[in-house]
Nucleic acid binder design. Structure first.
Length: 134
DNA sequence: GCCAACGTTGGC
DNA sequence: GCCAACGTTGGC
């Protein structure tokens, strides 16, 4: 069981859009590191859903429904997608500010590699963020 | 809106 | 294969 974090700009695709559709094919990733992370995702892994640019906070929890398959939005075979389903919206969102201020989260890939759209989250980090969200 | 970080491209 | 130029992302 692994843990991840995906980013989306809420004015393009928000948590509410995600819930409305009931699932999401995470397409459009054109970065090798992010792609590699998606390829490592297993069905049942948990995924934080983060709003970048506006909000800058973790808003909810999702789960990997389908492991990687070719990105239907491109002919290029290098790119893959995963399918995610929403699990729950957090009672309290966890802002980037909060995470940056927490020493226990100083190693978070989200903070260290702010431009990467799909990042791994360690079990310990996952538990801390989850506890901050409840 | 600015700019730092960083990935990608292309000339050599 | 190096590196400068350029484009994109995302925090502030």
């Amino acid at each position: 069981m692994n843990y991840w974090l995906v980013k989306s700009e809420p004015f393009k695709y928000s948590w509410d859009d995600f819930v409305k559709e009931g699932k999401s094919v995470w397409d459009g990733v054109r970065n090798y590191q992010a792609r590699n992370n998606m390829m490592a995702m297993k069905k049942g892994d948990w995924v934080f859903f983060y709003h970048s640019n506006e909000g800058m906070e973790v808003v909810g929890l999702a789960e990997v429904q389908k492991e990687h398959f070719p990105d239907p939005t491109t002919e290029d075979p290098r790119w893959v997608v995963v399918e995610l389903i929403p699990i729950k919206k957090f009672a309290k969102t966890v802002t980037l500010k909060t995470m940056k201020a927490d020493d226990r989260l100083s190693g978070l890939a989200l903070i260290k590699q702010s431009r990467l759209s799909v990042t791994p989250v360690a079990k310990a980090e996952f538990d801390i963020i989850l506890s901050l969200a409840e």
